[in-house]
Design a protein around this nucleic acid. Structure first.
Lengths: 208, 208
DNA sequence: ATCCAAAATCTAACCGTGTTAGGTAAACGG
DNA sequence: CCGTTTACCTAACACGGTTAGATTTTGGAT
């Protein structure tokens, strides 16, 4: 079956299929032949549209980054808008936990990313920062968001809070106090993120 | 050359060699056979001391995490101690840029990590937080540190600041204002991290 | 002392997965 | 209508993680 009457593949189609597979089965399942299978095609054919697997992974990462909503930075704007943007940013990564190793591979310098930084910096300046201060604040916010997306503080705590008591008393006390719904550790990650974000934003405009 | 008179390998020895290689040549160069070469041994022999390459990478990650100095959390203690700890933590990862994809693979729940969290939480409580507030603050600090270590905000900005002007004016202004040494973007990452850290720590104890 | 099981290394090879080479037929521009 | 390009295929390579099985030394038990 050479050159089909109607073209079956494209970079975008392949990237989408890869993202679906990644989402369903994780990074280990993401093999070129498997992606091809899903598209009713043989593995080697993908290379007419994608330079390498690495290149494909870049396309997938871009697909995800495109889901980040820059709207809140300009729409309502202000500190509340910045906070909304940051939460949305984080939320996108939380929806694609399998992406984490991908994102960490190398920094993306796509146009989308630049537009995001530009919007964030503009929002910070509009909120009262000098450009120099805004640069530092943007770096801090970016760090916080990415760290929060990549690591989920509580993931390392698999035992019941009380079980940490003998060896790690402060940890046991903090975890016990933190999760009102016992055994859930529910919103600690989110609350921690939100705390950090609010403190940074509040610290920018030294009160009113 | 079967079973040498004096044993050549051990998990620790292999992990150290792997870390050295990683440090010098990066993650792509980290092949089992290459590590073995360095130790004067054949690749297959490593599997008597290490379950898999993944297992070996865990050992390497642990080696690096062991370099994090928990001292400042108890020694001087207080907010200054916490800040010193956070800077040291970040510094370790900055020293091993090749480790980033490794760390992002999966959360470590080693004893060392637990001790770190315990010490951090204890320091926060000693600095005046309630246990519940300390839990959230620790999450925020952890996010900030990891994010800062993994991403280097400025890495995506490869052009000269002024070159961003037409399309990304706020970005151009911020970068221009931020780097006093033109073209260096020198300490922006560090200053942003430090800003975030200071704001979080200052916000914990609502002034005096 | 002697012997036997276990341990540490080797050689050889397997296997999966990314990738390339080269074929074939449909599409498209002239 | 013809030639070139395109988009797929089949076949196969290459490389890297991993396993099997042989070999020899160690070390403990008899």
């Amino acid at each position: 079956m050479p050159r089909p009457s109607q073209t079956l593949l494209s970079r975008a189609i392949i990237a989408r299929a890869a993202l679906d597979l990644l989402d369903e089965q994780g990074l280990e399942a993401l093999k070129m032949r498997t992606i091809a299978d899903r598209l009713g095609v043989k593995g080697a054919s993908l290379y007419h549209h994608v330079r390498s697997k690495d290149d494909l992974l870049d396309a997938v990462a871009e697909l995800i980054n495109d889901e980040i909503d820059l709207g809140p930075l300009s729409d309502p704007g202000g500190p509340a808008g910045i906070a909304a943007y940051a939460h949305g940013y984080r939320g996108v990564y939380l929806r694609y936990p399998h992406m984490i190793p991908l994102v960490a591979r190398h920094r993306v310098s796509s146009v989308k990313a630049l537009r995001g930084y530009d919007a964030l910096l503009a929002a910070l300046v509009r909120a009262g920062s000098t450009p120099a201060a805004a640069a530092e604040a943007a770096a801090a916010i970016d760090n916080l968001v990415l760290g929060s997306a990549l690591e989920t503080f509580t993931a390392g705590f698999t035992r019941q809070p009380a079980d940490y008591r003998p060896d790690f008393p402060a940890l046991a006390a903090a975890l016990t106090a933190a999760d009102e719904a016992p055994g859930a550790l529910a919103g600690l990650d989110t609350r921690g993120f939100d705390l950090g974000l609010r403190l940074i934003l509040a610290g920018l405009t030294p009160s009113a």
